[in-house]
Structure formats: structure tokens, C-alpha cells
């Protein structure tokens, strides 16, 4: 059975279609969730896509937090539902306090739109389990406010508790520096590109795996992330008893 996955659309979302495409490539059935609706329409998991929700006015992601659909997403997440925020979706999740930290204006001030490399720190989460080996994954970033920030104590906690999912990396797979390293596109602290919550069911990242799911798009390295998410959602939808990870 095909698993249904919700893609939230805010006014100003612009990567929703890419998320829909990625879900289809990964074998899921996408369902669009408009920001004014409270129903998640039985979705087994939810993606918050990239874009500029509500024009990014005030702070990126903050207005979206108060929309009817986000109240439902927060309740869904509190119940253990799987939620993935990509780029602007990541910003929305931090503003909604569903993920730790904040995304500040890029250290270099410029909007950065280019391919980057990242490495997964974990290969055993609902968001990364299909990644397999640990070679750097190539996918684009496109954001002006993607500098991951948290205070030092929070960063230590995130690292200790295994909540750091992705870091920006150089081509050889070594972790990027914080400043003056082109491999870190926005100056994120400790080169953090993606994190998850303590419960392990909500994750966000600035790079765009959903626009890197087919060779024709320049890279298919994002597909294992989308597939991890789809497989995990399918497993949860099938019932509480965990089953083996699908063939890859």
C-alpha cells in the first residue's frame, strides 16, 4: 500500500512541488495540506517545504507557526508523528519550538544558491536510515537565513544526544569549518546543516534533498533522505510492530 504523506503549503511556499515530486519518486502518495486547514487528511507523515512562508516577514518562519495547519502539525509531532522541515520548513520548525536552535542571516550576508556537500552524522534515524555509506551527499542550498545558531551548552547537548543529523562538508568528506570555509555556505555553528528533536521524530535541514532526487536534476543524493522518511512513515502506518527496512 502506498503511504500518504502531507506537504504543507503556506502562502509563499515555493518548493512544495519539488517535495511532491520527490515523494512520488520515492513511491509515496503526496497530499497537499493548505495552511488554513486543520486536518492533516490522514497523512502518515508531514513535510514542511521550502519557500518564503508569509513572505518571511518579521522573521523567517515565525508567522507560519500560528497557522491552523501548524497547530495540527505540532499536535501530530507531540504524538510522535514524523515531520521533516526543509529550508524554510526548518525555519518554521525552530520558530514553532519543535526543533532546537535558530536560523540566523547568513554570516556572509549573501543569499546563497548553489550545490553543497553534507555528511550524515547518523544512519539509524527515520530521516537517514536509507543513506547507507557515509560519503558526502551533494545537493543544493538556496537561502538567505540559514546560519544555524544555538548557545554553546545547547550545541554540546545536541552533539551528545545525537541530535545533529547533517553537517556541511568539504568534497573529501571532512567537516567544514565555521568561518571562512566555502564548504559552510552560511557560517552555521559547528557546520550544522540539520538537526532532529530529542524524541527523534521531527527533523529539519537547510539543504534541499527534495530537489536532488534524480540524475537529471544534477544529483540524486537527496533521494535516500526522502526514501528514509517515506519508508519510516510506511512502517509506522502499517502498525506499531516494527518491520524490517524495505529492500534498497
Amino acid at each position: 500500500m502506498t503511504v500518504r504523506i502531507g506537504v504543507v503549503v503556506f502562502p509563499g511556499s515555493n518548493r512544495d512541488i519539488d517535495a511532491v515530486n520527490a515523494l512520488q519518486v520515492a513511491g509515496a502518495e503526496p497530499v497537499i495540506l493548505w495552511h488554513e486547514q486543520a486536518s492533516l487528511e490522514g497523512a502518515a507523515a508531514v513535510i514542511l517545504p521550502g519557500g518564503f512562508a508569509y513572505g518571511d516577514y518579521l522573521r523567517a518562519g515565525v508567522i507560519a507557526r500560528f497557522s491552523p495547519v501548524m497547530r495540527s502539525v505540532a499536535a501530530f509531532a507531540a504524538d510522535g508523528g514524523l515531520v521533516l522541515g526543509i529550508c524554510n520548513g526548518f525555519q518554521v520548525l525552530t520558530e514553532a519550538h519543535l526543533l532546537p536552535g535558530a536560523l540566523l542571516r547568513n554570516r556572509g550576508l549573501r543569499f546563497v544558491s548553489r550545490q553543497v556537500a553534507l555528511v550524515a552524522e547518523r544512519h539509524d534515524t527515520p530521516f537517514t536510515r536509507a543513506i547507507g555509506d557515509s560519503r558526502p551527499l551533494r545537493m543544493p542550498v538556496a537561502h538567505g537565513e540559514g546560519c544555524f545558531y544555538a548557545d554553546a551548552a545547547t550545541l554540546d547537548d545536541l552533539e551528545r544526544d545525537g541530535q545533529v543529523l547533517f553537517r556541511y562538508a568539504r568534497a573529501d568528506g571532512s567537516i567544514a569549518g565555521e568561518t571562512d570555509d566555502p564548504a559552510n555556505p552560511n557560517g552555521s555553528m559547528r557546520a550544522i546543516a540539520g538537526v532532529m528533536n530529542a524524541a527523534g521524530n521531527v527533523a529539519g535541514l537547510m539543504p534541499h534533498p527534495e530537489t536532488a532526487v534524480e540524475a537529471v536534476l544534477g544529483s540524486a543524493d537527496g533521494l535516500p533522505i526522502i526514501r528514509s522518511f517515506v519508508e519510516s512513515a510506511a512502517q509506522r502506518a502499517a502498525g506499531p510492530a516494527p518491520v524490517a527496512v524495505g529492500a534498497r
Binding site: 540566523l104 542571516r105 550576508l109 545558531y149
Partner: peptide, 9 residues
């Protein structure tokens, strides 16, 4: 203590 790239610019 929070980085303020705008201020720096």
C-alpha cells in the same frame, strides 16, 4: 554576543 552580520555590514 549574537552574530549580527547586518550590523557588521
Amino acid at each position: 554576543g549574537i552574530l549580527d552580520p547586518q550590523g557588521r555590514a
